[in-house]
Design a protein around this nucleic acid. Structure first.
Lengths: 293, 293
DNA sequence: CACCGACGATAAGCGATGCTGATGGACCCG
DNA sequence: CGGGTCCATCAGCATCGCTTATCGTCGGTG
């Protein structure tokens, strides 16, 4: 018997909520149905996936959760891809981007492309990096612009979601954002290794886990910010809640309320990548080429 | 509505057979059920996937076929992986290998590992490269040994099938296998570029598509051999049906019935990789480490 | 040219599946 | 100790998906 994706979605929903009833509400079933679905899945596999009261995954359940997400994403991606082959080409191009991905380079290229193709309608939206690949894979956006911190010319690590092309778009130097009164605020350049014990903001724009991956352990959390608003991050940094790393172009000229100091070592950049599934020939392909430069 | 894997398997079976009735026979359904399943899938997606009489995929259907295989494999792989977390560790280790993967280096390491772990039972089977990843992913073998032609220290291109580790095991120089009377048989070394217009055997042990990928177009087919028996390939080469490339150790010392000439350029090797899913700690892990060297 | 056989589509019938709503038992909190 | 919350279970019932039977169509053949 094959694992039914239906049951799999139910399982991940239950695990996410830590509750059968809440999952039932979200999925539009009764609690009884959820209970039966989980029971069916456990019976099929012959082992317990969830411990009840409190509801939390067993080791096997945790394993299944790791598989279920990508699996369901691929399923939706496959569906979207097949439907795309039949869709008539549209003049509307939906572009999804992480907040920092729309930098001056990208904006300029986009403007040039639109000037060259006046009939092209572009709809831009921002979203978190985690959701971007899914958005593009599922066909809810034709183009994705992912921004992230990486070593120069290293690709970003995006969640895999089937056959999807990626191309580098731009790389921009990073600056450390400091409060004006900070002892290091006057420096011309800074080494990250010297800041490993300073307090840092943990934000989606510059996640500390990524920094630790790239540079090494350390980077204690000063304040965690869950939003993606650059202005808020700058304000928090200005108030001394912690340091953060941003692409130079994201900090107002002169620094505004903060001090921006280039990073000397290690060499890190804010890299932007373009991702898209198979595009219909026409304006979409042209725009993709224009953005990739 | 999510695409049901059940329907997807039916679809790929029908496409493979080019027949509803044959698929019904294979899957143990009636022809009517198959017809309804395909109709359901087409209704769900809102487009035709198969043209009837003769039965062959439409463009959208071909697209779906490309997705369906990997998708179903991942589904089975996920199931196998979850079940593995609950299985008690066994002393039986199933190893699947492509024919040339079990070379002297691998055999020796295997012998050493077994000497170190007398309680370890090993069952070895050979299979084609295409099936190997699936076999390991689905848990029908704990370890896989894939052999193939690659540039030195380049990884083999194996079908992706979810979270699976791969490690290089060995690389061995290749020889061109020629019939004894061949004009080039006396040479000390040969350049592949000089053999691009010669007749070649097309065999799973040395697929011409791979050679064309690595070296360039050309390599006309002298004879296609569908089996993986090395002895047969040598016999065919000796009879002048075409050239082929084999790892040096696969040709009997002195050449036997054929002439073996090392390849001077481009540098290509027969590379063996070990692949395995998450292994239980114990003999399996030890053997994997021993094989990886 | 007409027939026959193979194949896929369709209709009707029916059993299995999977939902809802009701109820029961375990646990938590006051 | 009682009420509330949460998941499991049961009975009832609608729906889904299979089988059997039949039809339409295409293609090969006498």
């Amino acid at each position: 018997m094959l694992m039914d994706p239906h049951l799999l979605t139910t399982f991940v929903t239950v695990a996410r909520h830590g509750s059968f009833s809440a999952a039932a509400a979200e999925l539009g079933y009764t609690q009884s149905a959820i209970s039966q679905q989980i029971a069916a899945l456990e019976a099929d596999l012959g082992l317990a996936l969830l411990r009840r009261r409190p509801v939390e995954p067993t080791p096997a359940g945790r394993r299944l959760l790791e598989h279920a997400g990508p699996l369901l994403l691929r399923l939706r991606a496959a569906r979207a891809d097949v439907l795309r082959t039949a869709a008539e080409p549209s003049h509307l191009l939906r572009v999804a981007a992480t907040p920092l991905a729309v930098n001056p380079v990208v904006a300029a290229r986009l403007a040039a492309a639109r000037a060259a193709q006046p009939r092209l309608e572009v709809r831009l939206r921002t979203c978190r990096a985690e959701r971007l690949a899914a958005l593009v894979a599922e066909g809810r956006a034709e183009l994705g612009l992912a921004g992230g911190i990486a070593a120069p010319s290293d690709p970003l690590r995006l969640p895999e979601s089937g056959p999807m092309s990626t191309a580098g778009v731009s790389e921009e130097d990073l600056v450390v954002v400091l409060e004006p009164g900070h002892p290091l605020a006057g420096r011309a350049r800074l080494r990250l290794a010297d800041l490993i014990d300073a307090r840092w903001l943990d934000t989606p724009l510059c996640p500390l886990t990524r920094l630790r991956d790239l540079v090494g352990d350390g980077f204690p959390v000063g304040l965690e910010y869950e939003g993606d608003d650059v202005h808020t991050v700058l304000t928090l940094a200005a108030a001394g809640h912690g340091l953060t790393l941003l692409p130079a172009s994201a900090v107002p000229a002169g620094g505004g309320p903060v001090c921006a100091v280039p990073v000397a070592a290690p060499r890190l950049v804010h890299r932007v990548e373009l991702l898209h599934a198979a595009l219909p020939p026409g304006p979409a392909t042209a725009l993709a080429a224009a953005l990739a430069g």
